[in-house]
Amino acid sequence: MPDILYFAWLRDRLGRERETLTLPSDVTHVRDLVRLLHDRGGEYGEIFSRPELVRVAVNQSFATLGDRVRPDDEIAFFPPVTGG
């Protein structure tokens, strides 16, 4: 089961920093996972309907909507970075 991590204001708004999710069989790519989270509605619905606000990493590398997700992946959602 993948771990989903949330950082910065995404975590604040969703009220959690991590969750473990059993992926339905039709969730094979980041795009599918974003749709699944969006369909929860509420804050999830608002955040995941605006992909320009959200960046994603799979196993600690930047990823895009077209990348695969697998059951043991670590998937993180966060805002564009502002370090330095």
């Binding site: 910065a8 970075v81 502002t82 330095g84």
Partner: peptide, 22 residues
């Protein structure tokens, strides 16, 4: 600044707190 996953939250003298936008 663009690829390392750091995020900054600003704390102002007047008590406002906000996340820095890229």
């Amino acid at each position: 600044k663009s690829r390392a996953p750091f995020w900054k939250k600003e704390e102002f003298m007047d008590g406002r707190i906000q996340w820095v936008q890229p």
